[in-house]
Write a protein that binds this DNA or RNA. Structure first.
Length: 570
RNA sequence: CGGGGCGUGGCGCAGUUUGGCAGCGCGUUUGACUGGGGGUCAAAAGGUCGCCGGUUCAAAUCCGGCCGCCCCGACCA
């Protein structure tokens, strides 16, 4: 590609809206342009990167035996009614209405569509296993788009869906996808870690996420420093402490805590640390009211609570319900003297406390010196709290959990029959018995990978693309475009590299050397070839590897091979 | 949705407190010079100051409403 003919739109200064490196550099380098919050144009250079990432994914998916399809963006409401997700999927799908007032959503994911597709086409066990995938735009009505390409309202995703006869088949399909993902991230030079995760609105079990550790990520993972346990903070567990014998040495006492509704206010007023307080959180579920107890310095994990509760519904009690249950306004709930039908579930850590503080179930008052047994009974013990950095690992004897920020790049799920049952995706086995397919689903955030690559590979002057994702393999800078001899050398090199399958951005523009160097660094092709002074004086071209600044000289005859070698070297 | 910040030529910003000619740097265009890290000189183009309304002799500036963008948080009592 001749730079003079190409659509290169770099910015000398980053737009003020961009804070993180990937957002800033993708804008500056002329890869993307904003349209609205979480909505972007892909410029020619950015599209090349996106397409190369897609190509890596496509090759590995095909190699794993998956078949590419393309499904629609527009999903009829009826389809989502059948899976029951029209009203429950979070984040809420973007909805649209046509002139006949038929309702649709813009697909946030494609379980419904693909399962319906397969339901129509699939009849016999002879036709499965089958895995279908697509690379397509997805829409999600995010609470808040942020961080450039990392969280968008509209983004590119590769989603795959497997259909099997039985659990063993699902395991094989799942493993095949898992292995393909490992190869994809290897080829893209992204050192991901896989972690346990929550299935969320997709559903299913055995879900794992592929995470890139990065300060600018929005997720947190906990990794054990001793064993190989790694989990999203959503479901990370830590080792429960040893319960202590209830001492009951002290007697419960009522103290005035006017207007002290938060843990912070109560502990400040009473002069105790938050780990001496037990927080009582009231929930409403299908089975009735639930009081969840965690230590004052801990955060309750709602996924964990939900796992210990029957039924679908689980929400915080509202102000009126709190008053009905406790006789007090929000902020003064405690386990002592709650109605008998309120089920008390406590986090294991509470069992190691004595003489603690709780709400008194009356306005502006708390209890001190509360003790298990003496003052109240716990119905069920469970792991309810968010894990914390430094917690003891629950999976080995000696390890400690370490918190890391990360970017979620992919997520794989074993779905089972959730969708195949709902959408009638059934097959007949050899005996003629009809059963629903056993499904798995596998997603990769393609556009998010582009951002992740920049987060992982950049320096102060620009991007350092790994070869498989780079917009061009190499760039040639012709520093003296008016010098016919040098121009002929650069022209030849450009064409020779092209003949060898190397995609080159050839900067033959009438611009100053400084501009060309700065722009080449910003755009970040893996190898830079300079034709200039050294070529005129010594008959050699200069090669530099963008990733590490490695420099070398090559004679004109060796130049093409040298470029190839540098491309292969990392 | 709650909180905070911002909105002024393409980009980055000053000017708003205290109303009085709409400015600076970069980029762009033209010409000359230059030619190894966003070069120099000269000239030029480019703005309904986010939108609507109000106050005023006069509004980028004050008041009201709305819109957009960015950041933090979002049932944790």
């Amino acid at each position: 590609m001749l730079a003079s003919q190409y659509y290169i739109r770099t910015l000398r200064e980053a737009p003020a809206e961009a804070e993180i490196a990937s957002h800033r550099l993708l804008l500056r380098g002329g890869f993307i342009r904003p349209v609205g919050a979480g909505i972007f144009n892909w410029l020619p250079m950015g599209l090349r990167v996106l397409q190369r990432v897609e190509q890596v994914i496509r090759e590995e998916m095909n190699a794993a035996g998956a078949h590419e399809v393309l499904m629609p963006v527009l999903h009829p409401r009826e389809l989502w009614e059948r899976s029951g997700r029209w009203d429950t999927f979070a984040p809420t799908p973007l909805r649209v209405i046509d002139r006949a007032e038929r309702e649709f959503c813009l697909g946030p994911t494609h379980e419904e569509v693909v399962t319906d597709l397969v339901a129509m086409d699939l009849d016999s066990y002879r036709e499965i296993p089958a895995t279908l995938y697509q690379i397509q735009v997805k829409f999600r009505d995010e609470l808040r788009p942020r961080a450039g390409l990392i969280r968008c309202k509209e983004f590119i995703m590769k989603d795959a869906y497997s259909f099997d006869r039985d659990r063993e088949g699902l395991d094989r399909s799942y493993d095949a996808m898992f292995d393909a993902y490992v190869r994809i991230f290897e080829r893209l030079n992204l050192p991901v870690v896989t972690v346990e995760a929550e299935a969320g609105s997709i559903g299913g079990t055995d879900t794992r996420e592929f995470m890139l550790l990065s300060e600018n990520g929005e997720d947190t993972v906990y990794m054990c420093d001793s064993c190989d346990y790694a989990s999203n903070s959503e479901c990370a567990t830590s080792r429960a402490p040893q319960p202590i014998e209830p001492a009951a040495a002290s007697t419960r006492e009522l103290v005035d805590t006017p207007d002290a509704k938060t843990v912070e206010q109560v502990t400040a007023m009473l002069g105790v640390t938050p780990d001496r307080l037990v927080k009582t959180l009231l929930f409403r579920s299908d089975e009735g009211f639930i009081a969840a107890l965690v230590r004052g310095d801990r955060a309750l994990n709602d996924f964990k609570l939900a796992r210990n509760v029957q039924g679908e519904e689980l929400r915080m009690a509202n102000d009126a319900e709190v008053r009905e249950l406790t006789g007090a306004r929000v902020g003064f709930a405690g386990p002592v003297g709650l109605p008998d039908d309120v089920r008390i579930i406590a986090d294991h850590e509470v069992s190691a406390l004595s003489d603690f503080v709780t709400g008194a179930n009356q306005d502006d008052a708390h209890f001190v010196n509360v003790n298990l047994g003496a003052d109240f009974e716990v119905d069920d013990w469970a792991d309810l709290r968010e894990a914390c950095h430094g917690d003891a690992c629950a999976h080995c004897a000696t390890g400690t959990l370490e918190a890391h920020r990360c970017i979620e790049l992919a997520h794989v799920f074993k779905l089972g029959t959730k969708y195949s049952s709902a959408m009638d995706a059934t097959f007949r086995d050899a005996e003629g018995t009809e059963s629903p397919c056993i499904m798995g689903c596998y997603g990769i955030g393609v556009s998010r990978i582009v951002a992740a690559l920049v987060e992982q590979y950049h320096d102060d002057s620009g991007i350092m693309w790994p070869r498989e994702a780079a917009p061009f393999d190499a760039t040639i800078l012709l520093l003296s475009p008016d010098d016919d001899e040098l121009r002929a050398i650069a022209d030849n090199l450009y064409s020779d590299l092209g003949d060898r399958g190397i995609e080159v951005l050839y900067d033959e523009r009438d611009a100053s050397p400084g501009v060309k160097f700065a722009e080449a660094d910003l755009i970040g092709c893996p190898v830079r070839v300079v034709v200039g002074r050294t070529t005129r004086n010594e008959g050699k071209v200069e090669l530099r590897r963008r990733a590490d600044g490695h420099d070398e000289l090559a004679s004109l005859e060796d130049a093409v091979d040298a470029v190839l070698r540098l491309l292969e070297s990392r």
